[in-house]
């Protein structure tokens, strides 16, 4: 990415970023950066990332950021926001962090309508640890812990996070699923999420993303998997009450 196309709130000193070639994280973080730029929130945003690939974003922005434990980004941001409500709290995590080890925190924050914005990157695998099955791994998808393809009879069906949270959130909370295939649409969703936070409500945006390293896919196959397989199962949408 050229200097000029970077969001203003990106920290130039930590670029080029540390994600693998073809990884979708950079695009999600670009959408987030653009949303923050457009809402002019860089002066009051705190960004926290999980463990997993999301941790590589620990110094991604010009605003304060920190890296926490696996699954615990949500409660850290809940505490920070409660203690200092003027901050815009962004919790950034992967699908393992949000839907497995940290699901209890995610659901509880949604139930309490904690005014934070959670951005969850769904790339269907535990990537940093070497490509294990995630709650989001598609039926039949091969990973290191589903080497013969995910058997839904034995391991259940892939989780649809925003749809799940819809059952518990406040009517004015914001829930959406976007994709790195449509960065501007994703940015818009994140913007709405941040606005919901400013209005005092919980917001959650799942971003469908890519992991060619663990999918072991070529550039074209990566994009095809994102748009076809993932797009078929996980519908890009706003989930409003």
């Amino acid at each position: 990415m050229s200097e000029r196309s970077m969001p203003r709130c990106w920290n130039r000193e930590s670029k080029p970023h540390r994600f693998c070639p073809g990884c979708g994280h950079g695009l999600v973080l670009k959408a987030l950066g653009m949303a923050i730029d457009e809402l002019d929130l860089a002066g009051r945003t705190v960004f926290a990332c999980d463990i997993g690939c999301s941790l590589l974003a620990w110094d991604f922005f010009t605003f304060p950021s920190l890296q926490t434990h696996h699954g615990r980004t949500t409660p850290v941001m809940v505490g920070l926001k409660r203690a200092d409500p003027d901050q815009i709290a962004v919790a950034y995590m992967g699908d393992g962090g949000g839907y497995a080890i940290g699901l209890q925190h995610l659901i509880s924050a949604a139930l309490r309508d904690d005014p934070i914005t959670v951005i969850l990157v769904n790339n269907t695998v535990y990537a940093m640890t070497g490509g294990q099955m995630a709650p989001t791994t598609l039926p039949g998808q091969k990973t290191e812990t589903s080497p013969f393809g995910r058997d839904v009879d034995a391991t259940g069906i892939p989780v649809k996070g925003p749809e799940m949270l819809k059952a518990v959130v406040h009517p004015e909370a914001y829930l959406a699923r976007g994709t790195v295939a449509q960065v501007l649409k994703l940015k818009k969703a994140i913007q709405k999420g941040l606005e919901a936070q400013m209005a005092g409500h919980f917001s959650f945006i799942e971003a469908l993303s890519t992991c060619p390293t663990n999918w072991r896919t070529s550039a074209s196959a990566t994009w095809a998997f994102l748009e076809k397989e993932m797009g078929d199962y996980y519908k890009v949408a706003e989930l409003m009450h």
């Binding site: 615990r72 409660p75 505490g79 926001k81 200092d84 925190h105």
Partner: peptide
Amino acid sequence: LSAGFACLGAV
């Protein structure tokens, strides 16, 4: 876990 981590966020 949440109580502990929320404390850290506040701190």
